[in-house]
Nucleic acid binder design. Structure first.
Length: 489
RNA sequence: GGCGCCAUGGUGUAACUGGUUAACACGCCGCCCUCUCAAGGCGGAGAGUUCGGGUUCGAUCCCCGAUGGCGCUGCCA
């Protein structure tokens, strides 16, 4: 790792200099897709540069925050494989820091008490005269304000936005500037002493010595308010990197309207965590032209490749089809030993208990994984490989078991297998083809019919591989029982 | 409404930051393979880079404007 080469100690975006970053969700909901991606980017950035990734829970909105949500967020992060080095810190436990920071701002003249009540403000807004706070309390004499406070009057603390303009050099958007006239004298501390987001982020980001703030682009408009506080507090500015938002297929901001929005919902859909992480990483970020023809990146690849300048400026649409593709790629590439625990989790959730040995399970998984689109398939489509009670798909029966002569043939075929000295993938095929030739029927008809009789499905791996996986006894048993398959009309 | 940001096929992204037949992946279509379905192989349709001006010998890339989308506009975060 190199030295910090920038003058003033400022860390520029890709300076390899032990950056400190954070993910700061507010526990008013589960970990959603956008938050997960922000967390992922921060994590990748920290890991890439050997920095520190901090988790901070922004729970100053007591009304809407809950402990269950905190647990949900942690669960989501663990699921996609994100670990943190410090925290979780809870803002609700750091109130004194914010109050002290507010006091500092008041003492230095950058903030003032505001005695307007919420109702008064609302009324003024309703009149339509003042879209922004009219700063009336800013005109109050400091000694007078102090006295009113001492007398027990409730007051919020507002930041006194100066004239001029505020700008910063965003690591992804470049220079961004706001006229201060567009900013209102925002509240730092509510009248009950609880800080607002504007104060608590800045106080914490400074106290935690963060060097880079990587967060959603929805915070761009908040940034000037924060920059102003850094200046007032004489703190060094971190590098801001705003990440574009994730949109739904209709190009509006992703929300429950679009279906699953919680990360855990994707777990429940049978998505493999690495597939989800890979997909997410490529939403709004690209490793650049050197890797333009690659899409599959392991966690290690991503860490090695991730830098801020690969982040794009435009919003990205969440594409379920592409996620599904990543999922099949990962499931197919996984060793069955690695897949088994994930599938077992799925089985547990589906209250499905396999009745096979571990070896048989692994063999079946190896056979089936190229055709799986989701972990769910192992409890549904592929049930017949793991248990002996399974349903016959009516469509499959109609398609391949409709011939009235077929059941008798399959039963006879079963007796051939029973009489055969050995039962292997090759011998099973040999026997079936000889049988078909003898009876002068198409091998394909026998094969397709057998497939349905053995698995209940029209879709499966090569039949003889299936037979080998199922074993001689089960093959004979299921072929013999073909007459019991419910016919369809 | 005000302010800010963004704009490459349906989707995600590339394009040595002015010179390419605008590339890759997903999706879609077709063919091959074949015992089904996937996978795989091969091929195809689909953008002239939102639109209009400018700068330039030359603009996806620079400038201006328009349009559209998104964000913010709370004693929410």
């Amino acid at each position: 790792m190199g030295e910090d080469r920038e003058e003033g100690g400022r860390l520029m975006p890709d300076t390899p200099s032990f950056p400190r970053v954070r993910f700061a969700p507010s526990p008013t909901g589960y970990l959603h897709v956008g938050g997960a991606r922000t967390a992922l980017f921060n994590w990748l950035f920290a890991r890439h540069f050997g920095g520190t990734f901090i988790l901070r829970i922004e729970d100053t909105d007591f009304e809407r925050s809950s402990e269950a949500m905190v647990e949900g967020i942690l669960e989501g992060m663990r699921w996609i494989g994100l670990d943190w080095d410090e925290g979780p810190f809870f803002q609700s436990q750091r109130l004194p820091l914010y109050q002290a920071t507010a006091q500092k701002l008041i003492d230095s003249g950058y903030a003032y008490y505001c005695f307007c009540t919420k109702d008064e403000l609302e009324a003024r807004r309703a009149q339509g005269t003042a879209a922004m706070y009219d700063r009336r309390c800013r005109a109050l004499d400091p000694p007078e304000s102090k006295q009113r406070r001492l007398d027990g009057q409730a007051a919020a603390v507002r930041f006194a936005v100066p004239d001029g303009s505020t700008s910063w050099n965003d690591a992804v958007f470049g220079r961004v500037e706001f006229a201060n006239a567009e900013l209102e004298d925002f509240v730092l501390l509510r009248s009950d002493g609880i800080p607002t987001y504007h104060l608590s982020v800045v106080a914490d980001d400074i106290q935690m010595r963060l060097t880079h703030i990587i967060r959603g682009a929805d915070h761009i408009s908040n940034t000037p308010k924060q920059v102003l506080q850094y200046r007032a507090l004489q703190a060094e500015l971190p590098v801001f990197a705003h990440v574009p938002l994730i949109l739904g297929p209709d190009k509006t901001r992703l929300s429950k309207r679009h279906g699953a929005t919680s990360v855990i919902a994707y777990k429940d859909m049978g998505i493999v965590p690495e597939a989800f992480r890979n997909f997410l990483a490529l939403l709004g970020w690209s490793p650049g032209s050197a890797h333009r023809d690659r899409e599959i990146f392991s966690s290690g690849d991503l860490i090695q490749l991730f830098t801020l300048d690969g982040i794009s400026k435009s919003n990205a649409v969440f594409d379920n089809d592409k996620l599904a593709w990543f999922n099949t790629e990962y499931i197919r590439a996984y060793a069955s030993e690695k897949l088994l625990p994930l599938i077992e989790t799925e089985w547990k959730a589906a209250q499905f208990t396999p009745t096979r040995s571990r070896e048989e399970l692994l063999a079946a998984i190896d056979l089936l994984k190229p055709r799986a689109r989701s972990l769910k398939d192992f409890a549904t489509l592929f049930r017949a490989y793991f248990r002996d009670d399974f349903e016959y798909d009516p469509a499959a029966v109609t398609k391949f078991l409709a011939d009235p002569e077929l059941p008798a043939w399959l039963q006879e075929l079963a007796t051939r297998y029973a009489a055969a000295p050995e039962f292997t993938e090759a011998s099973a095929e040999e026997i079936l083809r000889v049988f078909a030739a003898e009876k002068n029927i198409k091998a394909g008809a026998l094969i397709n019919g057998s497939r349905v009789a053995l698995t209940g499905q029209a879709v499966a791996p090569s039949l003889f591989a299936v037979m080998a996986a199922l074993g001689k006894d089960r093959v004979i048993e299921r072929l013999s029982a073909v007459a019991k398959v419910p016919a369809t009309g």
